[in-house]
């Protein structure tokens, strides 16, 4: 359909929640159409004019954002039923999906809501700690040059490095639930990323141990939604297979070699 005329309003149906643990409720707002709007600019308009369609005075809708160019992941929310970044969700595109002209905004459902569209994604950062998603180079002496990197390895690692911890892959995953233990595609892919690093791989065994407990790699059900919704086009299902292979080999080694010496 063609973009609505200038005078037209875009209706936003927004799922709101006043604080953690509070009941959620819906409110609708109208935002005057302009070309090249994105969801965040509409939320800014609503913050300035917090009046519902019914004419009730409300409060500004709260959301999280930072970079405004789809590199930080903070502004992720469920837009028209699909998880994505609100900064890069362009209204001209969204209106094509919803010929009725209504845009629905909801907070992600797999993370606890802080307020309205703002959720607490700390589970993802805790997962990165669990798998030691870093290169251990802290020390008192000079470690010298880092190891050489092949072009092939660099290619793969570059694709994995693009993760912005946005949570799309977890929101769309049928195995990742609010309150369960599954570590999810993001951390699995980061474990692969750091296990591929010349220096980072010294922690590979610990990462795999962490990956093999409850909520680890085996809890993936291979629905492959993660790879389809990842805005950074990270080859998540290949990472899942790669960590699956590393875990298989690791388990066989553990079986024959016994646990590591303390």
């Amino acid at each position: 359909m063609t973009a609505p005329a200038n005078t037209k309003n875009i209706r936003f149906k927004i799922k709101r929640q006043d604080g953690p643990g509070k009941a959620s409720y819906w409110q609708t707002f109208d935002v005057p159409y302009k070309p090249n709007l994105n969801v965040i600019s509409c939320l800014q308009y609503i913050a300035e004019h917090p009046v519902t369609v019914a004419g009730e005075k409300s409060t500004p809708v709260v959301w999280d954002c930072n970079c405004l160019e789809e590199v930080c992941g903070a502004c992720t929310m469920v837009i028209n039923g699909k998880v994505r970044q609100s900064c890069s969700a362009l209204l001209d595109e969204l209106l094509k999906e919803t010929p009725g002209g209504m845009v629905t905004l909801e907070p992600m459902t797999k993370f606890p809501v802080v307020r309205d569209l703002w959720v607490d994604r700390s589970r993802m950062f805790n997962a990165l700690k669990t798998i030691q998603a870093w290169v251990p180079i802290d020390g008192t002496h000079d470690l010298g040059e880092g190891p050489k990197e092949s072009a092939e390895n660099q290619d793969v690692r570059y694709s994995l490095s693009r993760c912005m911890t946005c949570g799309c892959c977890l929101e769309a995953c049928p195995q990742f639930l609010l309150g369960n233990q599954f570590i999810g595609a993001q951390a699995i892919s980061q474990a692969r990323y750091f296990n591929l690093h010349g220096t980072g791989k010294v922690l590979a065994d610990q990462r795999l141990d962490a990956m093999m407990g409850p909520g680890g790699i085996t809890d993936c059900g291979n629905a492959q939604n993660c790879v389809k919704v990842c805005p950074k086009e990270i080859p998540l299902t290949e990472s899942i297979a790669a960590i699956g292979r590393q875990a298989t080999v690791h388990a066989v080694k553990r079986f024959f070699n016994g646990p590591p010496r303390k």
């Binding site: 643990g21 700390s122 309150g179 233990q181």
Partner: peptide, 12 residues
Amino acid sequence: MSADASPNAQAP
């Protein structure tokens, strides 16, 4: 969709 379910479910 309540937020009262603990994000960091107590590991058994």
